[in-house]
Design a protein around this nucleic acid. Sequence first.
DNA 1: AATACGTGGAG
DNA 2: TCTCCAAGTAT
Length: 349
Amino acid sequence: MPSAADLLAWYDRHRRVLPWRAGPGESRDPYRIWLSEVMLQQTTVATVGPRYARFLDRFPTVNALAEADWAKVAEEWAGLGYYARARNLHACAKAVVARGGFPPDAPGLEELPGIGRYTASAVAAIAFDQPMVPVDGNVERVTARLAAVEEPLPGAKPRLTALAARFMEDPAARARPGDFAQALFDLGATICTPRSPACALCPWCEGCAARRAGIAAALPRKSPKAARPLRHGAHFLLTDAQGRILLRRRPEKGLLGGMLEVPGTPWRVGAWDAAEALAHAPAAAPWRLLPGTARHGFTHFELEMVLYAAPLPSGLVPEGEWHAAAAARGAVPTVMRRLIDLARLPDSA
DNA sequence: AATACGTGGAG
DNA sequence: TCTCCAAGTAT
């Protein structure tokens, strides 16, 4: 078993400075730790950096977030993806305020919306000094290599979780659970990387079974994933006299749930011909098909969209909200921004 | 257990 | 262009 002291010593010399990370002895705000953990789910540090700062600026406390309208939270999360996170974040803030603060341990945290096994452990360790080892992709990789686990993910997940939990048997880890967790993250992010691990620089190099076997770069193995089908959609950009565009709010659940969208057809495997598409238009108007298509990759399918545009016929009041094009670009999911950009509106750039 | 759920960057 | 991947969660 590699020594926690070795990893912590390495961490003390090489720790990354990150906006959500408290310096030695600095106080830790559970709200900030929790926000960063949710934002970092399946999202890179580089992406989160500026968005985290902006979010905190707008919602400085859990109370401010709890009291905010959903539309404001959605706008602030726009472009970050996995929008269930934003819905759960908002619901969680309300729950935390209602109960008078964050639960200070993992079981309590895991009962809150949007907080699963990983996030509960991470917040418990980092904000509340609980002896937990949060198991994220970094920790899975580090652990799979240390023990040379050849079983592919996600099947190997329980084994890796059990192996990682044993790190906390080391008193040095128990003395600094939050730092130990973040040391594992840093190790995975900077040394024990997915492609070509820098084993020569690794504080745990000597205890690593995969390194000894010469298979570190090949671990963890992953089960093959399903192919992504191509789907098609047709969307409708309605412009009013002031050059604003019509957006509407998607249903709470499912893809892009609760976010603003440019009205359109459902997304299906078959392409849409004009007559079929126009049945889904938000208003009867002189629609014309714009040249080009917009493409966007989702996790489980690829999407190709066409865009129809029309001015609002006088006297019509369609369902939805009017937004200036420039503002709309910043308030919608990326897939919708691509669509708006396809129209090359005067103020959209 | 398997699938749904976004996006941007690296190689 | 394309594949992989990033501090996962909910159902």
